[in-house]
Simulated scan of single mutants.
Amino acid sequence: MHHERSRYLAGRGYLAACTLGLPADVTRAAVLRDLEAWAAGTASAGDYSAALERARGHAATLLGAQPQQVATGSQVSVFTGLVAASAPSGAEVLCVDGDFSSIVAPFLARADLRVRHVPLDALADEIRPDTWLVSASLVQSATGALADAASVAAAARDAGALTLIDTTQATGWMPTDDLDADLVVCHAYKWLGAPRGAAFAAFSDRAVDELTPFTAGWYSGADPWTSCYGPGLHLAPDATRFDVSPAWHAWAGAEAALGFAASLDLHAVRRDDLALANAFRERLGLAASDSAIVTWEDPTGCDLAALTAAGITASGRAGRARVAFHLWNDEEDVELAADALRPSGSRVPSHR
């Protein structure tokens, strides 16, 4: 997929798809067109809604769902908040220890829920008959580790528990169209390279039935243009009842970004991203992995500082240095990053 590198204005030394993705040429062009139309007074609500519906179709493709099963929003935590607000008092919610706050904090904010945190590799085994919901990221933000989503889904089904899977750190570099979950949520500004403020979620029939659309507004009706005023409640019969009024400018870019991602062979993207990530791991003496995110212990931040000093854009999370490899990267980025950490061949990261 390295031929896709030409679609990006920059990318050399940019190892931060897991923090902020880069826009492909089509996304950049769409955002610029939108800015010009807005400035010229030719932008319209109808055109924005049409763009959003096209984007919903692309999101459905990426999540292996039908468009009517997909709700559009602005942030993962808002979708998680709907689940948390809908939980019965005293319900048990099972989370991964150290998972991203957006799929943990809404449950903690309700003092009457029992929130249990377990290690990622124990998640399926820790699901109990009284577990109401399992909430987990498919790819962990802090470590890059992948969840065994199939085992979690099977155990949750056996227990009658709902499942919430966050694919923000997965969709775009790996296929996410075969997840068996009641709610699959994704914010598109990382690996999908969309403007921040465009998120989407696929709802199972059970989730549509059991969750309350507390964020209902004019866009949650079957026809938003006839749902603008009370006193009645206007709710679509499907997952679009969970739509929030779209952030128009974000979705102008997201339509292009999601369409571009949906056109790619994500099995090939995963293969190529993993090849780069594992080549980097090999250079540092780290074991091969199944994640495009590479992290290692860096409690003092020295390794991150070395990468930054070499002109490489990386990140640090939870006492670990973190880099990611995606469409705009190639083998030269692997060498640049490895050389920054091992300038004389004698220095390796603190975690072997």
Rank of each mutant, 00 (worst) to 15 (best):
M1G: 03
S6N: 02
Y8M: 05
L9T: 01
G11P: 05
G11I: 06
L15C: 05
A17M: 08
T19I: 13
L20P: 00
L22E: 14
V26S: 14
T27A: 09
R28F: 14
R28L: 15
A30Y: 14
L32S: 07
R33V: 05
R33P: 00
G41T: 05
G41Q: 09
D47C: 04
A51R: 08
A51Y: 00
A55Y: 02
A55M: 03
H58Y: 15
T61P: 01
L62T: 07
A65C: 07
Q68N: 11
T72G: 13
T72A: 13
V76M: 03
S77W: 07
F79Q: 12
G90M: 14
A91I: 15
V93M: 04
C95D: 02
D97V: 01
V104K: 04
V104Q: 04
R110H: 08
A111F: 03
A111R: 15
D112C: 12
R114E: 00
L123E: 14
D125Y: 00
I127R: 09
P129K: 03
T131F: 10
V134E: 13
S135T: 05
A145V: 07
A147E: 10
A150H: 10
V152G: 10
A153T: 10
A154L: 14
R157K: 15
D158Q: 15
G160P: 11
A161L: 10
L162R: 11
D166E: 10
T167M: 03
G172R: 01
D178P: 02
V185H: 00
C186N: 14
G193F: 11
G193T: 10
A194Y: 11
A201E: 10
F203D: 10
S204T: 06
R206M: 04
P213N: 04
F214C: 02
T215I: 00
T215A: 13
L233E: 15
L233V: 15
A236Y: 10
D238F: 05
R241Q: 13
A247T: 07
H249M: 06
A250N: 14
W251A: 01
W251P: 02
A252K: 02
G253Y: 08
E255R: 06
A257N: 05
G259H: 02
G259I: 10
F260Q: 03
F260N: 00
A262H: 06
L264R: 14
L264I: 12
A275C: 04
N278F: 12
S289R: 07
A292L: 08
V294A: 09
E297H: 02
D298T: 00
D303K: 01
L307K: 02
A309L: 12
A314C: 05
H326P: 02
H326L: 08
W328I: 14
D330L: 07
E331T: 14
D333H: 02
L336W: 13
L336V: 04
R342V: 00
P343G: 08
P343H: 06
G345T: 01
G345K: 10
S346M: 06
R347W: 07
R347S: 06
V348C: 07
H351W: 09
R352A: 05
